[in-house]
Design a binder for these strands. Sequence first.
DNA 1: AGGAATTAGTTTCCGTGTAACATATATTAT
DNA 2: ATAATATATGTTACACGGAAACTAATTCCT
Lengths: 146, 146
Amino acid sequence: MGDFAKDINSKFENNRIKAMLNILYTANYITSYQNDFFKTYGLSPQQYNILRILRGAKEPIKVQTIKERMVERAPNLTRLTDKLCDKKLINRIAFPEDRRVVLIEITKSGLALLDKIKPNNPSHNLIDKLTEEEAGRLSDLLDKMR
Amino acid sequence: MGDFAKDINSKFENNRIKAMLNILYTANYITSYQNDFFKTYGLSPQQYNILRILRGAKEPIKVQTIKERMVERAPNLTRLTDKLCDKKLINRIAFPEDRRVVLIEITKSGLALLDKIKPNNPSHNLIDKLTEEEAGRLSDLLDKMR
DNA sequence: AGGAATTAGTTTCCGTGTAACATATATTAT
DNA sequence: ATAATATATGTTACACGGAAACTAATTCCT
């Protein structure tokens, strides 16, 4: 993929600006990669994330609980769960004890889809080019920056 | 802003996964900051970027040229320029020599808006917490990762 | 000159963040 | 205890942005 500066065809005032643009560029690179991957299964990364959480839960859980467990915050789970319902990958269950609450469970076909995806999951090979130690330093620098 | 791992309330398999999530998280942090800033002027970061390119050009330029000079790739400039036209910040000009081409120029009020924004532009103080040398290392690690 | 390939820009589709909203439950004051 | 208020939960409505399909104009090739 070569050098970043050449890719976006621009010059930088200094390393700090360059680093910031590079973060945005790299994040976009990662999400594009993930989008393409999950699209082959008819999912978005967020939808995949929800399915994994539901499988992990092993029982119907509240929408609110899903929200708490998601890596990226997803402000409208309604829409995401709508899509998963349409595809019969999850079910909604009413919760009489608190009628505001909606429980969600994963269906058989949801579990089957996860099984199909598992072997190729890209999260792991996306960043093979860094050593563990380098990855640690990268993360530390990002933490410091904020 | 404290430690990233705590913020998203999750555990990491290893530093590489952690670094990847941290990149996405940090990029989101940056864009949220920028969105909020430019929103006070009724712009998106991309719209601001276009105005700056037009000011720099000092003459009407092709949409295609704008696209090449943008930091982030913007697949549909039509929509962005629509918005800027609505706000009278730019003008579209037909180009008889090649009727596929549309030229864009910045208006007086576009230039005036840029002048208002300039003093507070956040790109500079967003990343003051890193030294030049650290920023350089960060950028190198990101390059290596891709 | 005529058809294929390329280029420029537009339109359309979809996913997502934000904010306003509706409903249900919890809390507080009297 | 009950009415008024506050909080929690999920939904709906709106705007933005990336990707891809599409249209029109130009260039290339023979």
